[in-house]
């Protein structure tokens, strides 16, 4: 228990002291996770809505697959991305292994199924309300996809935030494809793993608290935006 309080103090000190190294790590974490959340949303939102609205063979299997992908072990994703991006791998010519871009790729692969699965649920609920009206207006199922996504945007913001949370809290894949290189690919989670393995548990926990604070701040901001817009748009 004492250790936790010590870490809390340390975390406040770290935040208050605005240590440039820590700041760099925090900024990189947020930046990469946001990019991955946006990229994952760009893939996952249309995909989820398409599955929700569409009627095509294999749809049920796709839903089961998507839900199963929610539990995708990040280490496996990391390994696959590593093998793809490795110089000896098929995408080796890109030369992005052990760069922030590789982290974004791995995070995006983890985020996209989450966003798609949750977006499918949200879009399916919206489609139940909209189907008759949109069909009556002559809207095709394909055309309904962007309409549903736009109309469910406030609920989907939460979905994208869940994706951001997964990206920001991700360690296994990020460690493998980023390499936890000091000043280049070291993010909050890999820094925490490093300090843990150095036995500096208070510092590791303090970094963890900073991470929680960051995720909390992003969520609070998004929640405020959502509330404000929902009030103004009904």
């Amino acid at each position: 228990m004492l250790e936790i309080f010590a870490s809390l103090g340390l975390a406040l000190g770290l935040i208050g002291g605005a240590d440039p190294t820590l700041l760099g790590i925090v900024v990189l974490s947020i930046e990469l996770s946001l990019v991955a959340a946006v990229a994952g949303a760009a893939i996952g939102l249309p995909l989820g809505a398409l599955i929700a609205v569409g009627r095509f063979p294999g749809r049920r299997s796709l839903i089961v697959l998507l839900n199963a992908l929610l539990g995708l072990p990040s280490v496996v994703v990391g390994l696959v991305v590593y093998l793809l991006l490795s110089r000896a791998g098929p995408l080796g010519t890109l030369g992005i292994l052990f760069t922030p871009a590789a982290i974004v790729v791995a995070q995006t692969l983890l985020v996209a199924p989450i966003v798609a699965a949750l977006a499918r649920q949200t879009a399916e609920d919206a489609w139940k309300d909209y189907e008759e009206q949109l069909t009556s207006l002559g809207v095709s199922r394909l055309r309904a996809v962007p309409t549903i996504l736009w109309d469910a945007r406030f609920s989907l913001l939460t979905v994208v935030l869940a994706g951001f949370g997964r990206a920001a809290s991700e360690v296994g894949a990020v460690m493998i494809v980023g390499g936890n290189i000091d000043g280049v690919t070291r993010v909050m989670t890999t820094a925490i793993a490093l300090e843990t393995s150095k036995g500096d548990l208070p510092l590791a926990l303090a970094l963890g608290l900073v991470l929680i604070a960051v995720v909390l701040a992003v969520n609070a901001g998004a929640y405020a935006i959502r509330e404000w817009s929902a009030r103004h748009h009904g």
């Binding site: 990229a39 760009a42 992005i96 871009a101 055309r143 962007p146 736009w150």
Partner: peptide, 29 residues
């Protein structure tokens, strides 16, 4: 009443975001 999909305001915005994010990701390297 059959209508083809036209990229609306929303989807073009999404496309722009995707491009921007790709650039942003590639930038540090």
């Amino acid at each position: 009443m059959e209508v083809t999909l036209r990229p609306g305001r929303w989807s073009s915005r999404l496309a722009r975001m995707a491009v921007a994010s790709t650039l942003l990701a590639a930038y540090p390297a």
